[in-house]
Nucleic acid binder design. Structure first.
Length: 480
RNA sequence: CGGGGCGUGGCUCAGCCUGGUAGAGCGCCUGGUUCGGGUCCAGGAGGCCGGAGGUUCGAAUCCUCUCGCCCCGACCA
């Protein structure tokens, strides 16, 4: 019996995560390019499902895809003061091209607000041109000091939505609408519960007026910012002179938004559902929902089993694992590590009884069911897995969310709840949106993740730092 | 970017201290055998020891530099 190649979560969570990514054949470090990774077909297939789900929702809310250049004139970044300050430490800059020093260097986009601002200025003249609703699927580069596959790499894939509106109200509706789209995909497709909320001033996007995020809880209790949506106000409109003539004939700057999710979602997915046996994929996100492993010993059995296997596979859309020279046991482990939601086992015994064994990845439960109506049985099982994964993740989130009444209590909870031991907590406490309060929390190696939009707490209370009355509790946690 | 650890067949690692021309297990290939949770046996392929430079008659081993990965911290989707 071979040793499990996956480090148990309890032993070393970071190592477990990496083992799952590797054993699930999702990605591997691109050791020849610093901080980058190769997303392998198994991982990319998941990204494609996410893209499909997100893109459909973007289109349904009126957005169109476009594509802007990877290279951005350096001066563009500097037009918005906060923006350049926020991003300059992590920029990669192209200074030489075609064998010549460039007159003006290009930065490789860390995000595209600036270059899109430039083009919006060209394209928008009248209120009739608004709203302008665009999205681009792209890669970006941010020179990160510390990288982890999917969670933070130097280059990553994402989508960035960019919109321009004639009023602030309309822009705000857009910001929250897209935040809801993200929450919908996270919860209903990825089965990953999230907390929607507003970032503090200290944590908002460089150049935004307000930033909203969805925050998810990983199995070790750490928070993961899984998506952001920004109210850019007129900041970029002013920086790039994006003006329009309103119905009254007056010139005004547009109100812009931007919003994005990245391949980081895949990291969140892994850290939400996977276990010590490897990857666990929710059915709605699994590129391969079921695999059928045929079992036989004699040649006569082989033919009969395979014949039935193909018939059932056709009915259910399963893949038949026909590889020779691998025992069924080896195949079970193989698909288990890759997170396939259901494995169907079909052998001579099943042929004789007219049954087939259905094995769930989430619970490990194994049950012989009738071959008649197997497609419906499988669908019901997949649905049950999807529901179960979301329910257990939500339960974990609830169980590890606690209230704190004082700064000392926050410190105690965060100290006890060492994430290395898997006991990280979400702490809800009244705290003011003031950079000094953020700084205080940072002393505990945690951050104010966001101020939840849906306040499931007890309403107003006194800030644990300043003592002033604030409208609601905020979410405090250690985070990736 | 600071601190720590690590780079030796595809993978996990031994060998390094005390230089003498590279090993094991797993995987892979071939044949047979097996097949309801990682079958077993036999044969076989595969590595200029991360890279560069130096010391030496001789370097995986000693020295210098460099690149990368992992972990911890400060910064971040």
């Amino acid at each position: 019996m071979a040793e499990s190649p996956i480090t148990p979560r309890g032993a070393d969570f970071a190592q477990w995560y990496q083992d799952v990514v590797l054993q699930g054949d999702m990605a591997e470090p691109a050791e020849i390019v610093k901080g980058c990774m190769v997303i392998k077909p198994n991982g990319y297939a998941v990204w494609e499902v996410l893209q499909r789900e997100l893109d459909g929702r973007f289109k349904a809310t009126g957005h169109q895809n476009a594509y802007f250049p990877l290279l951005i004139p350096q001066s563009f970044l500097q037009k918005e003061a906060e923006h350049v300050e926020g991003f300059s430490p992590e920029l990669a800059v192209v200074t030489v091209a075609g064998g010549k020093e460039l007159e003006e260097p290009y930065v490789i986009r860390p995000t595209s607000e600036t270059i899109i601002g430039h083009f919006f200025a060209k394209w928008i003249q009248s209120w009739r041109d608004l709203p302008m609703l665009m999205n681009q699927w792209a890669n970006v580069i941010r020179w990160e000091l510390r990288t982890r596959m999917f969670l933070r790499t130097t280059e990553f894939l994402w989508q960035e939505g960019h919109t321009a509106h004639s009023t602030h109200e309309e822009a705000m509706e857009e910001v929250l609408r897209m935040l809801d789209v993200y929450a919908d995909v996270a919860e209903n497709i990825m089965a990953m519960p999230v907390i929607r909320g507003q970032k503090t001033r200290a944590e908002k996007f460089a150049g935004a007026v307000k930033t909203y995020s969805i925050e998810a809880m990983m199995q070790n209790g750490l928070a993961l910012q899984a998506g952001t949506s920004h109210d850019l106000g007129q900041n970029f409109g002013k920086a790039f002179d994006v003006k329009f003539q309103n119905k009254e004939g007056q010139l005004d700057y547009v109100w812009q938004t931007s919003w994005g999710v990245s391949t980081r979602l895949i990291g969140g997915l892994i850290m939400t559902h996977s276990d010590d046996k490897g990857l666990v994929l929710p059915p709605k996100l699994a590129p391969l929902k079921s695999v059928l492993v045929p079992i036989y010993r004699k040649e006569e059995e082989r033919a009969a089993v395979l014949e039935a296997a193909h018939r059932i596979a056709k009915e259910t859309g399963s893949k038949v694992d026909e590889r020779e020279g691998h025992s069924p046991g080896a195949k079970f482990f193989h698909w288990e590590r890759r997170g396939v939601p259901v494995v169907l086992e079909l052998g001579p015994r099943d042929l004789a009884s007219g049954k087939i064994v259905v094995k769930r990845r989430d619970t490990g439960a194994k049950e012989p069911v009738s071959q008649d109506g197997i497609a419906a049985t499988l669908d019901a099982t997949l649905e049950a897995i999807q529901t179960n994964l979301f329910a257990s993740a939500r339960e974990r989130l609830k169980a590890n969310t606690v209230w704190a009444a004082s700064i000392g209590e926050v410190e105690e909870i965060l100290k006890d709840a060492s994430a290395e031991k898997g006991g990280g907590k979400f702490v809800m406490a009244h705290i003011k949106d003031d950079p000094e309060c953020d700084a205080r929390i940072k002393q505990f190696k945690a951050t104010i993740r966001n101020m939840p939009l849906v306040d499931e707490c007890d309403g107003p209370g006194k800030c644990i730092v300043t003592g002033e009355t604030v409208p609601q509790r905020a979410l405090i946690a250690k985070a990736y």
